[in-house]
Design a protein around this nucleic acid. Structure first.
Lengths: 194, 194
DNA sequence: GTCTATAACCTGATAGAC
DNA sequence: GTCTATCAGGTTATAGAC
């Protein structure tokens, strides 16, 4: 542990905030997790909100940073795009299981992050995808195409607590389950286009 | 308004709890919404938790009650099953947009509802689906089949705040968007089987 | 059954000693 | 920089009058 106090607090905040969300998180829990005193948290970050902004910004970029570069590259085929998204997201989420639920959850209740998304409207228009679909005679809308890819990749992580609690997936099999899906998703999505 | 005080409280609790979740809900807000005094809430239900249990149980059944009867009916083909699920869920969720997120969210934090799911392991084994897939020579696993159906139907509702805030879907177009998807989903899912 | 007043508790933040 | 003690505000739950 060569971490400064500031880093300890951020690391702890990352853990607790992503697990529980802003509202359910207690600053005392972050302090305990960091192994420091509650007063120090306010000394370094002044408020719970300030600390949260650092984490949500970081997590938001983690989750959405990769999507635009992949989708907008004209030199990457549709198949390769789906492959890249499925592979990258599955790998990312396997070590950040709470990430998609956390970001979607905060998006619902957090004015700040909502504003951030609205400003980053880079992913708004997807003419590259639209062209690639048209060129090959596929009639699906760009929006349905993107929605299907994202659904098939992200939903297993969001619904994991449900599937595990029903016994449909065992905790210890989950990694294999999504690693296997990762390989099928490109074929599945391409088949929806026919 | 011919409602008893008890019914008024439950109705109000349903509204506030599904919108905000257990933690973010204030019993004062429920009392206000019901047009009654805060003390009456405790008089009738003794605690916030007790009141919540009534709502989460009801919502849980709403969300998952329909899935097992449809999937386990041997006289309903795979195509018809997907059609029924897509149609029923889309219609249900269009008037209960917060429902899937609410249930999944509480499942993560609520010991009580977790226990409830574990006991209702009816949907655990799906030999009917497995047989229907085998009979027709489809090699997809039952779990992937179910996951794909549920993903494609539910995810648009869970991710609506994201897609609306990015501008990819406009609030006023959302109903048309999911109504249109509802009709495509059976074909999409069946195409993944080839 | 319904209300007002308040107890009991929790949580974010700060004061002040070291 | 770090700690202990405490404040200030908010929230669930209850006591007691009507």
């Amino acid at each position: 542990m060569e971490l400064t106090t500031e880093e300890k607090i951020i690391t702890a905040a990352r853990t607790i905030f992503t697990q529980k969300g802003f509202n359910a998180t207690r600053t005392r829990d972050i302090a305990d997790e960091a192994g420091i005193n509650l007063a120090l948290l306010n000394y370094y970050f002044r408020s719970k909100k300030n600390l949260f902004r650092i984490i949500i910004e970081e997590k938001f970029d983690e989750l959405f940073g990769m999507i635009e570069p992949i989708l907008s590259d004209v030199n990457v085929s549709l198949e390769e795009k789906i492959e890249a998204l499925a592979a990258n997201y599955t790998n990312l989420l396997l070590v950040n299981e709470d990430l998609p639920f956390f970001v979607l959850s905060e998006l619902k209740s957090n004015e700040y992050i909502l504003e951030k998304v609205k400003k980053n409207t880079r992913m708004l228009s997807q003419p590259v995808i639209e062209n690639q679909l048209k060129e090959r005679g596929f009639t699906i809308s760009t929006l349905n195409f993107i929605m299907n890819i994202v659904s098939l990749i992200l939903f297993p992580f969001i619904s994991k607590p449900l599937f595990v609690s029903t016994g449909l997936v065992k905790e210890e099999d989950f990694t294999n389950f999504v690693m296997n899906r990762k390989q099928h998703i490109p074929t599945w999505v391409m088949n929806t286009l026919k």
